[in-house]
Write a protein that binds this DNA or RNA. Structure first.
Lengths: 225, 225
DNA sequence: TCGAGATTTTGACGCAGATCAAGTCCGGCG
DNA sequence: CGCCGGACTTGATCTGCGTCAAAATCTCGA
């Protein structure tokens, strides 16, 4: 049973603080859209249909080269948003989006959304704040990609994914895609995990699940050399 | 003779569209600050003093590791801004800033700026739009760093810097810093330039000036492999 | 104009991680 | 239940770029 537009919007921290009126107006323009696992949501350079809010499932945002190499910029889960930048700035999709699992989103179409932003100061402020977070995240990504080595990047990923429950980590998607997010090949990703296991830092539990044995050691590796 | 606060703010495309009142209020909180060549403006992790608008000169925004490696995120010239993200999002400086040449800026201090944003819808929208550009630029940077090789990155830099006048390119700062921006060492940067020259794509004119002979070839190299 | 210090260039060499090539594991479907 | 195809692992080899070292060149102040 997939959630309604209201539920999705309410679950988005991003709109948590907008006032009643603004929320109703948002709701009025919202459309629920669904995607099968693996389905393409949009591809880079095509006009952006609007801003998406994820209700359930997982979406992968990535760049693709003519030759087929891919770089994952972001994995977007429930309560998070994507394509805000293109929607607000009114440029075409800078990247591709694809559902990693069966996914339900709210789509806030371009024109009415821009109109809303032009009219509602509160909404505008919210968006401004969350864009700041986006920028911060991207700066961290650049830092990660250029200042850390492979082991450091993997360690950082594991620590980030484990923040919820203490020790167990569920890898949310294919290792191949996680590797692409870290600018690694899946071979290297695999080898690094193996090394971490031999070093006693982690332990494989199941297919996409592992346990952090020695958090200290991971933090050491992630500590910018 | 360095420019006044009004001149600096007027020259910033970013505030070009804000209305008279908002502009006056901005001006009211603006402080002119000056930096010597090489002077540190702020360092990462310290509280952010506010948002800066460059009037004259050039500022280098970069991350530094404990071990002293540096990654240049951005070079900020006249009419451009920096630290907007930290100022608006109210977090500490995510990176270091340093004047590359003698520089005059306007500083819009944190609290009054935030107050202004909370009160002025138009200003808020402007900031939102320019943050979108920031995000776009960062996404391009990530793409550049991970999808292109050294020659491709250098080619892209040259093409970008040459957009004004057709063929001649002036390198705005030390090659060392440009190299750091591309995640290269200065040695590699130098070698790539040499190769491009041997291949007849460019020609050295003077210290920090070169000419693009074969634009086609550069575009080929930058064409994402 | 000269000279010290910084920047850049050039060369030799090493290594992290990519690429290529077999496997191995697993999940789904006939 | 057994087969098939995609995901993952593992090993061998290759290579782009970093590191170290030294020479060449520039800049700027005395």
């Amino acid at each position: 049973m997939s959630p309604s537009a209201v539920e999705i919007l309410e679950n988005c921290p991003f709109f948590a603080d907008v006032n009643e009126t603004a929320f109703r107006r948002l709701f009025a323009i919202a459309r629920v859209v669904r995607f099968r696992s693996g389905q393409t949501i949009f591809v880079q350079n095509e006009p952006c249909p609007g801003m998406y809010v994820v209700g359930t499932g997982l979406v992968r945002i990535f760049k693709r080269t003519p030759q087929g190499r891919e770089r994952v910029l972001h994995l977007v889960g429930p309560g998070e948003t994507f394509a805000e930048v293109a929607a607000i700035g009114n440029f075409s999709c800078p990247a591709c989006a694809e559902a990693v699992s069966p996914t339900t989103c709210v789509l806030l179409p371009l024109e009415p959304l821009q109109k809303l932003i032009a009219e509602d100061h509160e909404l505008c402020r919210q968006l401004l704040l969350s864009l700041c977070l986006w920028v911060k995240r991207l700066v961290d990504l650049v830092e990660d990609l250029t200042l850390r080595d492979a082991a450091g990047r993997v360690a950082r990923l594991l620590l980030e994914k484990s923040q919820r429950d203490h020790r167990k980590v569920r890898l949310p998607t294919l290792k191949r895609h996680l590797a692409a997010q870290l600018d690694l090949t899946s071979e290297t990703f695999s080898r690094v995990l193996r090394r971490l296991e031999l070093a006693g830092a982690i332990k494989h539990l199941a297919r996409n699940e592992l346990e952090i044995i020695n958090k200290r050691k991971l933090e050491e590796l992630a500590r910018l050399e």
